[in-house]
């Protein structure tokens, strides 16, 4: 059975029909056409599908789509302001923090949730914040550095 669900996706009112039991990742990708969250494992252990719900990071593959009714969902697709990249996106590019890029959208959202509540995190707070996000390529070091750099840039701005 399909039911209508209305929520705010990256600031825009969005309405979709969802199958009962459908997960949010599937609804974002197929229902809303937002391909920025990635499917890695489908069982909550890789973090590639991380989105923010009410500002908190969640693995969208384990979220029932119906539960976001009336809430705000943020994805990497809405991170930049037009052509102006978010400081995290700029820091990831400048710090060569992506290789294949598959983990990147999840990393960015976990990092955004961190910086939104803690604008100047320590290195170990950054490690903790992305500990649910797996990366196969970078060895994490450039990602951690980029998040710390973005925090610095935001502080300076």
């Amino acid at each position: 059975m399909k039911s209508p669900v209305t929520f705010r996706l990256n600031g825009s009112e969005t309405a979709v029909f969802v199958d009962s039991g459908a997960n949010l990742l599937d609804v974002l990708r197929r229902g809303c056409g937002d391909l920025s969250p990635k499917y890695g494992c489908g069982q909550g252990s890789c973090g590639a599908c991380t989105v923010l719900i009410g500002g908190e990071p969640h693995v969208s593959c384990l979220v029932l789509a119906e539960t976001v009714a009336g809430r705000s969902v943020e994805t990497t697709g809405g991170l930049s302001n037009g052509p102006d990249l978010h400081p995290l996106q700029r820091a990831f590019i400048e710090g060569f923090a992506a290789q294949c890029g598959y983990c990147t959208p999840g990393m960015l959202m976990s990092a955004k949730a961190l910086l939104d509540r803690n604008p100047s995190p320590t290195r170990s707070e950054v490690e903790e914040a992305i500990s649910g996000n797996l990366c196969r390529c970078t060895g994490y070091e450039p990602i951690i550095d980029a998040i710390l750099e973005a925090a610095k840039q935001r502080g300076a701005a």
């Binding site: 494992c41 992305i130 500990s131 196969r136 060895g139 994490y140 070091e141």
Partner: peptide, 17 residues
């Protein structure tokens, strides 16, 4: 059978290189 049991070093295990 999944990433929880197939171990890899995480962001807290990086080594100065």
């Amino acid at each position: 059978i999944d990433f929880n049991h197939y171990l890899q070093p995480g962001p807290g295990d990086t080594v100065p290189h």
